[in-house]
Each structure stands twice: as structure tokens, then as C-alpha cells.
Amino acid sequence: MAAEGTSAMAASHFADAEQRETAATFGMWIFLATEVLFFGVLFAGYTVSRVQHAEAFILAGRHTDVLLGSINTAVLLTSSLTMALAVRAGSVGWRRSCAAWLVLTAVLGVAFLAIKGYEWHEDWLQGLVPGLRFAYSGPDAPGVELFFFLYFVMTGLHALHLTIGILVIAVMALLAARGRFSAAYHTPIVLTGLYWHFIDVVWIFLYPLFYLVSRS
């Protein structure tokens, strides 16, 4: 029964469906470990730059939008909840419920991107985009530019991952609605969920590093 609806995915080199799912989940975790170090370079760069330019980072930290950043954090945390509910629905074979939670997750992801895009737009208007339009001329301008360079690279890379996640979720929602998954076979949804939660984890760290610096 494990092979129901899975013929396209069935690979004869696995002993059984369970081995296949465990292998896929394990592989996803290894992939996420590489992602940790991929983002990690930027976190290391942030740490070193902040240690060297503590004052400038405090000045620069006042120029991010803490309200929008906090709303976005809540949006993303909520999308993790809906994703977890989608995976759960998928694991018991409720395909409509699964598709609905997936769609809601994707919508929250789009909302996040919209808010983020608005923030970037504001930064552009204020001339806070290093290399393209940087008009800040207060004290410690080079260090401030460094902060915003990291801000754009890190939130940009995060947004790129989020966009990929939204596209994958959209495809999964479509497949789920068409009945491609069952209680016995729903590995792609589990993997999508892991990826989505990982994006959330990255943001959990970006939030204090860019929005909560120097609020006191």
C-alpha cells in the first residue's frame, strides 16, 4: 500500500517506503546544516563587524523600523504554526485540510515579503542602501554603512529563501489538493515543512540583530 500514488517517486534501490522517508528527512536535516553555515558566514561577519564598530551599530540600529520588524516576526512565527498544522494534516491524509493550511502558510509568507518590501522601499527613500543610494552623513558613517550592508545582504538572502519556500509550498498545496499525498506517503510535505521552519529560525535571529539594537 505504500506505493499508492508514489510510483513516480518510488526508487527501487530502497528496501521499503519507510527507509525512503527516513533517508529523505535525514538528507533534509543535513542540507539544513549546510544552510546554517551558509547563513553563518553572514552572522560571523555581523558579529565581527559589531565588535569592531559597536558605536556605529547602535546609531545605525535606530534607523530600522522596529514596528514593522516586530509585526513581520509575528507573521513568520504564525506561518510556522500553520505549516506545522499542514504537515500534521498531511500525515493523517486529510488532503483538503493540508492544502488549506499550506495556502494559508504561503499567504503569510507573501504578507511577510510585502511588509519587508515596504521597509526596503522606505530605506531606499531615506538613502540607507549602501553602494546604490547611501546618503547618511551623521557620525560614524562608514560603520553605519557596514551595518546596512549586512542588513540588506542578510534580509535579502532570507527573503530569497522565503520566496523559494513560497513557490514550493504553492506546488505542494496543488499536489495535496489533487490527492497526490496520503497518510502513507507525504514525505515532500514533511521536507517542505522542515525547510520553512528553518527560514523561520533564521529570522528569529535576524530580528534582534537588526531591529532590537540600541532601543534602550
Binding site: G45, V48, A56, G143, F149
Partner: peptide, 16 residues
């Protein structure tokens, strides 16, 4: 872009 965390002009660090 001409800017980055390795750029000494910004106080960035090539050693990083």
C-alpha cells in the same frame, strides 16, 4: 557594489 564587510574604507576587515 563597491561596498562590503571586507572593505577597509568602511572599517571593514580584509582579514575577515
Amino acid at each position: 557594489l563597491g561596498v562590503g564587510i571586507f572593505d577597509p574604507a568602511l572599517g571593514g576587515d580584509p582579514l575577515l
